[in-house]
Amino acid sequence: MELDLEKHLAEAAASIEDAADLDALSEVDTALLGKKSAVTAAKRGLGDLEPDQRREMGGRLNEARATIEGLVASRRTELEATARVVRLEAERMDLTEADRGRRLGHRHVVTQTWDRLEDLFVGMGYTVAEGPEIEDEWHNFGALNFPLGHPARDMYDTLYVDYGEPQSTLLRTHTSPVQIRVMEAGEPPFYSIMPGRVFRSDTADATHMPVFHQLEALVVDRDITFGDLAGTLEAFTTAYFGEGFTTRLRPSYFPFTEPSAEFDVQRPDGSWLELGGCGMVHPEVLRAGGLDPEEWSGFAFGFGLDRLALMRHGIDDLRELFRNDHRFLSQF
């Protein structure tokens, strides 16, 4: 049987070209080059030929095979490209349909402020201390140099709880009792902040809540001075509010610090914001914390944390922080 290679190649090229998809191409490939193909059969018949003829025919068959393989491969490339286009088109998506506003939850704006302040002070070398919200009278007042009946106790509208002896237990009016707890629990030097929830018998309005948050700082080390207090407040103010914000201290009165001061922050536009209270830790407070005021000195400062949150976001009513309206909470 004589294979007309010319004709076969022409037919093969046509059938390869006719293969409409990759599956059809595979079938054509098998038919043209597989075990049952004409080329394979012809190759098998080479043994019957004379050596010269065999060599010549063998060479032509190999060439034909290579040609067919080339045609199949190029057709495969073509068909693969088409298939990719078809598939991609079939998979086309409108991603704006997919955007259903999936969201993370939101930390409360007070927590965000709290964490930001913690991070800032940790960076300045401070630890973070905590204490109970229901406090005993000693830690909230007595140890802080407010003797019983001291008129300065009136500065705080204290809420007491029915626990133990009458007026022995209260909702802490400030975070300052944690100063005493820090001194009781460890050995100086102390560089600590004490963020926390505090309570006053205040009717809720745009600037007052019976519950709010403060952040207090306590530093006790050797030779800590009032100049250190002023410098630390300035450093904190620049770090938290930014360049262009400065501070001033004005004499004030707190039983647990002396000298005492109010500290104000000046905005770049020149306006002032009264931020908090501060001072050198009173010798009686150091003593109450078990320290010798001749050996150790320190400063403390504190301010309202909620107010910083309000300021940062331009919120004009403190009550919003505690109303828990989803439309409010989800903004931060």
Binding site: M124, G125, Y126, T127, P189, F190, Y191, V219, D221, I224, T225, G227, D228, A230, G231, T232, E234, A235
Partner: peptide, 8 residues
């Protein structure tokens, strides 16, 4: 104004 370096 001076700023003490935290010793902890």
């Amino acid at each position: 104004r001076t700023t003490p370096r935290s010793t902890i």
